[in-house]
Computed example of a mutant assay.
Amino acid sequence: MGRAGLTIERLTEAGAELADEVGFENVTVAALARRFGVKDASLYSHLKNAADLRTRIAVVAVEEFAERVGTAVAGRAGRDSLVAFADAYRAFALERPGLYTATQLRIDPVPTPPPPAFLRTIELTYGMLRAYGLTEPDLTDAVRLLRSTFHGFSTLEANGGFTADRDVQASWERTVEALHVLLEHWPRAGTAVPTGAASPHRVT
């Protein structure tokens, strides 16, 4: 395939597909050039370098993630919204592993203003949690809890980290249900932890 018809949009789309195939960390200008059957130099009229390519892929990744989550939670609230959000998150992580990794990329410097998809992702997450009556700083703490849980579970699952006989889907459903219960009974900032609730001698 010659260089005719190459555009930044086409290169970014191909880069996103390549990320799912070989891993986001392995996406390079050289690898992308081989995919199109052209020399590396042919792509530098569209891309500055590998970092530029990865940043563009990351933006596409966040856009797709935001679209999936937004569609899933539309018209839902409370537990239904949490379950829909969680399922959409996990599905994206498992179905598009390269793009999911790209969503974790720290873009520095962040464009001003940030791409709309970044803002939408934040709004969707915080909006879902506000339905539980959370305000700052509890809101941010809850966001970090959910992100850590979803990321950890999805990453372990993708890497074959769950080897017990227990069905993974069943564990996922119980995990999300437990998060719902916790969010409904969130310990507000400044609330003292009951004495004896976490004994240093207790196995947890």
Rank of each mutant, 00 (worst) to 15 (best):
M1Q: 12
R3Y: 10
R3A: 13
G5V: 05
L6W: 02
L6F: 04
E9Y: 06
R10E: 08
L11H: 05
E13C: 06
L18S: 06
V22K: 09
G23K: 06
F24Y: 15
E25S: 14
E25I: 08
T28S: 15
A30K: 11
R34M: 10
R35A: 10
R35I: 02
F36S: 04
G37D: 03
V38D: 11
K39L: 14
D40C: 05
S42D: 15
L43Q: 02
Y44D: 04
Y44W: 13
H46K: 11
H46W: 12
K48V: 13
N49Y: 02
A50G: 09
A50H: 10
A50Y: 01
A51Y: 12
A51T: 13
D52V: 04
R54N: 06
R56N: 08
I57F: 05
A58T: 05
A58D: 06
V59G: 01
V59K: 02
V60K: 14
E63H: 03
E64M: 07
F65G: 04
F65E: 08
A66F: 01
V69A: 11
G70M: 04
G70Q: 02
R76T: 07
R76S: 07
A77T: 15
R79A: 13
L82H: 01
V83P: 06
A84Q: 05
A91I: 05
A93G: 02
L94A: 09
G98H: 00
G98D: 02
L99H: 00
A102M: 05
T103N: 09
T103D: 11
Q104S: 11
Q104E: 11
D108F: 09
P109I: 11
T112Y: 10
T112Q: 12
P113N: 04
P116K: 04
L119P: 01
L119S: 11
R120S: 04
R120K: 14
T121D: 10
E123G: 12
Y126R: 13
M128S: 00
L129P: 00
R130C: 03
Y132S: 02
G133S: 03
G133T: 01
D138P: 01
L139P: 00
L139K: 02
T140K: 07
T140V: 04
A142K: 01
A142P: 01
A142M: 03
L145F: 03
L145P: 00
L145R: 01
R147M: 10
S148L: 09
T149G: 00
H151N: 09
S154T: 05
E157T: 02
E157P: 00
G160H: 03
G161L: 09
A164Q: 08
D167S: 10
D167Y: 02
A170T: 10
S171G: 08
W172K: 02
W172Y: 11
E177H: 13
L179Y: 03
H180I: 04
V181C: 09
V181Q: 13
V181H: 14
L183W: 03
L183G: 03
A189D: 14
G190S: 08
T191S: 14
T191I: 08
V193L: 15
T195V: 15
A197R: 10
A198F: 14
A198H: 14
H201F: 13
R202L: 14
V203S: 12
